[in-house]
Computed example of a mutant assay.
Amino acid sequence: DLGKASLKQAILAGAHLEGVDLTKAHLEGATLLGAYLEGAFLQGASLEGANLYEAHFEGARLAGAHLEGAYLLGTHFEGKAIGDDELKRLRAWVPHFLEILPAADLRGIFLNNRTNLDDIHPGNDQYGYIALADVHWGDVNLTVVDWAGLKRLGDERIARPLNVEEEEGAQPGERGLPARAERAVDMLLRAQEVSDVVVSYVTRSPSLTKKLLERMVREERMQQETQQHLELERFRAAVRANRQLAVVLRTQGLNEAADRFAYRAHVLQKRVLWRSGASALGSYFFSCFLDMLAGYGYKPGRTVIAYISTILSFAIIYFSLGLLVGYRASISPLYALIISIISFHGRGFFPGGFLPTFPMAVFAACEAIIGLTIEISFIATFTQRYFGK
């Protein structure tokens, strides 16, 4: 346990510090060149000006760490699987070291314009990607990062608290549980004899047994509600992380990458609405419609597909109705297409000399409504995206 240790200017190049607790440790100016910090706890650690060239932070928790002026060229933040021999060595002194490490947790870290992020490894599809919610970017140069390789943020999988104080003592104990859980287990074990006597007494009393069962049902329901709340908060944090990153990327001219994360934020917000209960169902279905129609303005090809599909579908309907009612001579496929286009944009007005039947007029009115809806949604979505109104 090296929590809050003072290791300023320490030379730790190539050091094996896997799973070590360096919470709030002082490592300003330290040399950690190629150091192995897989699974380490570095919440709130001070790493200002540290040399982290090709250091290994797979599975590390750096939430709230200070990396102002740190040299992160080629630093490994991706997840990985630990080989059998290496895992055996690590578990000799960290008994519950994880066999599969996720990508690093970088939520709330502090960066500045002197932080070097060249060629960092942000993650992969197999083991996930780094979490970046509430990062203090501080004018760091983001153009040197390969954002195309960061397909999504790891915030979507993390449900742990961001507060550093809340995470202190969360390191695994002898049973592989967080320290708070370990203390709770010890208390339960010390009370085992008393609980055996209580259980024996309760089982002989029908009224107490009924009350016990009712309490168990309530606790199970509360546990389910807590799990649902954590799931909802996880998606909300992921929405925030994607929006924050999109804003920062756009300020540095990385519009294509920013668009990708902004769109991802909308998709995750749709999941938030779905989990928010019946009161948000209207917003959820409207969000689904905007996603399908134009990808919230980030996928205009979907609007083109919707437009063409609507025109062709109703053209087929008009042509089929013309055959059924005897308009074979007057409604050709091309004329049916013209009628469909006019109905879509002209709100049901037909060319002179053409008298539609009642079924055709009904479909024309439906197409006019669909066309108006598509046009309004298209304009509103793109106005929101490009003009922020």
Score class of each variant (00 low, 15 high):
residue 267 V to E: 14
residue 333 P to A: 06
residue 4 K to V: 08
residue 230 L to I: 12
residue 253 G to K: 07
residue 70 A to N: 03
residue 342 I to R: 12
residue 184 A to F: 11
residue 248 V to K: 12
residue 303 T to Q: 06
residue 282 G to C: 02
residue 275 R to Y: 10
residue 211 K to M: 15
residue 374 I to Y: 14
residue 29 G to M: 00
residue 45 A to P: 05
residue 340 S to R: 02
residue 4 K to P: 07
residue 288 C to H: 01
residue 26 H to G: 06
residue 370 I to N: 07
residue 74 G to P: 04
residue 218 R to V: 13
residue 272 V to T: 05
residue 131 A to P: 02
residue 293 L to R: 00
residue 71 Y to N: 09
residue 333 P to C: 07
residue 224 Q to W: 14
residue 70 A to M: 02
residue 113 N to I: 04
residue 6 S to L: 09
residue 317 I to M: 09
residue 290 L to W: 08
residue 192 Q to Y: 09
residue 323 L to V: 10
residue 55 A to D: 07
residue 75 T to E: 06
residue 270 K to D: 11
residue 348 G to A: 09
residue 208 L to M: 12
residue 186 D to V: 01
residue 11 I to C: 05
residue 98 L to C: 04
residue 169 G to E: 01
residue 175 R to L: 11
residue 195 S to N: 13
residue 191 A to G: 09
residue 219 E to I: 13
residue 25 A to N: 04
residue 303 T to E: 04
residue 276 S to N: 08
residue 215 R to P: 05
residue 365 A to Q: 14
residue 15 A to K: 02
residue 201 Y to L: 15
residue 22 L to K: 00
residue 155 D to A: 01
residue 15 A to V: 06
residue 21 D to H: 05
residue 221 R to Y: 13
residue 340 S to A: 14
residue 285 F to G: 00
residue 373 T to S: 15
residue 94 V to G: 00
residue 176 G to Y: 01
residue 150 L to D: 00
residue 365 A to P: 05
residue 257 A to W: 12
residue 182 E to H: 00
residue 200 S to W: 09
residue 93 W to K: 11
residue 262 A to M: 09
residue 369 I to S: 09
residue 157 R to G: 08
residue 122 P to H: 05
residue 294 A to Y: 03
residue 197 V to T: 11
residue 124 N to F: 03
residue 243 R to F: 14
